[in-house]
């Protein structure tokens, strides 16, 4: 059994009438990339804040590396690094000053110049905070989360607002952190990010976990394996497709016919039918299901509404 480094049981937090976090339980093992994913306002940040002692839960049990966030705040913060979603620094603080200042708060700080070069900030180290681009600010906050050489890194909406290239390099960084033996706990509202990056994912909606597993298992158990997209005439009788073993549903979308199937043997059945009927095919391709489909199925809504 891998060592559990974060344990949360039945966490609840209300803001007035709103149940921001409504009974969340989860465990994170050492060395994994764990992600909580869900739409904005689902309770991701509140959950993370409670875990890292930045917010007091209404009820529930939390243990991080064996520490109680409320009673052992300093000991806990010594061992974890936190990148907050909405945060800034004084406009006229320079990059190296911020890194130096924050690293002196920790008992065993990491090598600061190594962190700067790892985050690609070496040639920006004399820049004022206000002169940095959005992506550079984000990287600086990731750097600040690493100055204490933490065992667990908490990253809240790591890549929101970044361009696709910066997103990819952030993903590489997160994987490198895991390869260094650190545990990563991240939140995101990008389903593709959770799917590509995380070893395990908890899908959160309205303050509750609706599903938690590896991305592959979630897709296998909650979504169809494949969608077969076919450019065939509307006149073609869809019920013939539906009668093929393994086909779950058939519908028209964007002028094409889509069949959702359970496995690849159903695709063979479809191809055989189309050949038998001598249908003229415009387009024919298959799409793998994604976490997005899982979310849609479990909550009945699109994530980026």
């Amino acid at each position: 059994m891998p060592e559990v480094v974060v344990r949360v049981e039945d966490l609840k937090k209300c803001y007035g009438e709103v149940h921001a976090v409504d009974g969340i339980s989860l465990c994170v093992s050492r060395g994994e990339i764990f992600g909580i994913v869900g739409p904005n306002g689902a309770g991701k940040t509140t959950t993370m804040d409670c875990i890292v002692s930045m917010r007091k839960p209404d009820s529930g049990f939390i243990s991080v590396l064996g520490f109680d966030p409320l009673r052992q705040r300093k000991a806990l913060l010594e061992k974890v690094g936190i990148q907050q979603q909405e945060s800034e620094l004084p406009d006229r603080m320079k990059v190296w000053e911020a890194i130096d200042l924050f690293s002196c708060f920790y008992g065993n700080p990491a090598d600061t110049s190594g962190i700067l070069s790892r985050l690609g900030l070496s040639d920006k180290k004399d820049s004022h905070f206000s002169a940095l681009s959005g992506g550079q600010k984000k990287r600086l906050f990731v750097a600040l989360s690493l100055v204490g050489d933490p065992e667990i890194v908490f990253l809240d909406e790591l890549t929101s607002g970044l361009d696709p290239r910066s997103r990819c390099s952030m993903w590489d960084l997160v994987r490198a952190l895991r390869d260094d033996g650190k545990t990563v706990f991240l939140s995101t509202h990008y389903m593709d990010e959770a799917e590509k990056l995380c070893d395990r994912v908890a899908i959160i909606d309205n303050g509750k976990i609706v599903a938690m597993d590896t991305p592959e298992s979630l897709i296998r158990s909650h979504a169809f394996a494949l969608s077969v997209v076919m450019g065939i005439p509307e006149s073609f009788n869809e019920s013939e497709l539906e009668s093929i073993t393994g086909v779950v549903e058939v519908f028209r979308e964007g002028g094409k016919t889509v069949a959702r199937v359970r496995d690849s043997s159903a695709v063979v059945g479809i191809v055989k039918l189309l050949v038998d009927r001598e249908i003229e095919l415009g387009d024919f391709h298959t799409e793998k299901s994604t976490l997005e489909d899982v979310f849609l199925k479990l909550t009945g809504k699109e994530i980026n509404d």
């Binding site: 890292v52 705040r73 945060s87 800034e88």
Partner: peptide, 12 residues
């Protein structure tokens, strides 16, 4: 600007 919050997340 959330700077107080940033300081609060350090072990001081």
């Amino acid at each position: 600007k959330g700077i107080l919050r940033r300081f609060k997340s350090a072990p001081i």
